[in-house]
Design a protein around this nucleic acid. Structure first.
Lengths: 159, 159
DNA sequence: CGAAATTCGTAACATGTGTTACTAATTTGC
DNA sequence: GCAAATTAGTAACACATGTTACGAATTTCG
């Protein structure tokens, strides 16, 4: 509401923040995707590995909860990861679910890929100065919360 | 490189910046998409309108250049926009291309939608303080440049 | 000038992604 | 404790998206 950076004109796509974020995020995904490919991983597979790596045993539904993927995407990624012997499925107490564990091979692949991914992130963030980086990440957090709040609002009405 | 915000651990998806950006951008797109829908527009159509609205006449190839869409996506969006009489195609000097113009109806729709879109952007950005917003946008710009530079590097080698 | 190379847009195909519906298992509540 | 409702996962389908190949037009250069 300061009216200074808040122009209200015809709309220039290149200056439209949501659009800029989509373009930036897509470009990063592509660059990272190229890196995963060298390890034979797709992006959904990589995401599943990341979640599974964080606990001794997780269910597919946990992956759905912690990831912007739907049931089906997770189901497919889990299936291919099992074929590649990167993860293993074991029966769980609740027999509707399988408990997913990282196989030794999966651990190795994940360690390599996550090293690459973290290096990529670090390289980009280093182009921001220390203070600039702090401010950017703080703003990012604020936006995440604002968007999430709005999503809840829209979902709530008919509950 | 300050070693303080730059942890180098197992990798927590929720703290991985490229991942956060993808999730945020996707959420924004969905929320905006819901708004476009009320005007009967898809996201690609909206993007084409935005570019076409910025000059008296543009070619489809200009839309490709200014947008993260490939030829085919643009071609399809232009076709449906023409069906809906939101834009008009006219023969151009170079007869391989059509010159695209906003129809009166298209102008009206675009004005309504862009007002909504700008209001959405403003609402989100207002959750950042003035200074925080400035810093965030500056960081965003820096990252855009860093990613673009890296993309050029990767493309260059075999040129 | 005229043949070869390039560019624009689209069509035809392949691939991927989301949606709906179903099965099996479990939990809830009478 | 058993019928009804809920949950996990998958299969089958529909739809969107990317890829490759082409036809028409234009530009380049011998």
């Amino acid at each position: 509401m300061s009216g200074e950076t808040m122009k209200d004109y015809p709309l220039d796509l290149a200056a439209f923040t949501p659009y800029r974020l989509v373009v930036l995020a897509r470009a990063m995904s592509e660059q990272l995707g190229a890196l995963y490919e060298s390890e034979g991983l797709t992006i959904p597979e990589w995401r599943v590995l990341a979640v599974v790596s964080q606990a001794p045993s997780v269910a597919a539904r946990d992956v759905v909860a912690r990831t912007p993927m739907d049931k089906m995407a997770v189901s497919r990624a889990v299936a291919t990861l099992e074929e590649k012997s990167l993860i293993a499925r074991a029966p769980a107490a609740d027999r509707r679910v399988s408990s997913l564990k990282l196989a030794a091979k999966g651990r190795a692949v994940f360690d390599r890929v996550s090293a690459i991914a973290l290096r990529y992130e670090a390289t980009l963030l280093q182009t921001l100065g220390d203070e600039e980086r702090r401010a950017f990440l703080a703003g990012l957090r604020t936006l995440e919360l604002a968007v999430a709040a709005r999503a809840r609002e829209n979902a709530a009405p008919q509950a």
